[in-house]
Amino acid sequence: MNVFRLAGDVSHLVAIIILLLKIWRSRSCAGISGKSQLLFALVFTTRYLDLFTVYISAYNTIMKVVFLALSYATVYLIYMRFRNTYDSENDSFRVEFLLVPVIGLSFLEHYAFTPMEVLWTFSIFLEAVAIMPQLFMITKTGEAESITTHYLFFLGLYRALYIANWVWRYHTEGFFDQIAVVSGVVQTIFYCDFFYLYVTKVVQGRSKMSLP
């Protein structure tokens, strides 16, 4: 554990809590892509199957359980509790265009051809692209509420901090996880354009982020 890794996990947690609180307090999931949230729930589910097989640390176990619980709670709020506020019209990204290549890639590239390893790889690849329905929705409607952009900011920050963590781990312990690092870098690139808009529009005091 290093400071980048811890800060990354905290950012990730903050992002998820921001989204959950936004939906809960406003009693609405307008502007939120349910598809992205379903994909994140699938990411956590397929990645954390090792909760049942190996024990790493109390921190590891607790965080996994928290991420799973919060992601399912988010999906529940969007698709059940506040379903009438869900903007399915604009959440029109074709998820199969992500799932099919990701399933294919995880069968081609993995550390071992076992169900657990292939599912772990699938979760890593899927996480890299899971935000795309959300970014697509923002592009389609041309705007995002500032609270939604804060969510995306912390999610992107988490990815950037994980890269710093890998650089640190490579230099201090020679750790290099090729699958995680390559897809992590790809994932972070998706946020660059958003980061630029966030800094130029939201931080400078606009309540909504409108696309130019």
């Binding site: 790493i56 590891n60 996994k64 993995h110 995680a180």
Partner: peptide
């Protein structure tokens, strides 16, 4: 042959 990595990261 590739080595299975330890999954301590989230």
């Amino acid at each position: 042959k590739k080595e299975v990595k330890s999954k301590d990261e989230l």
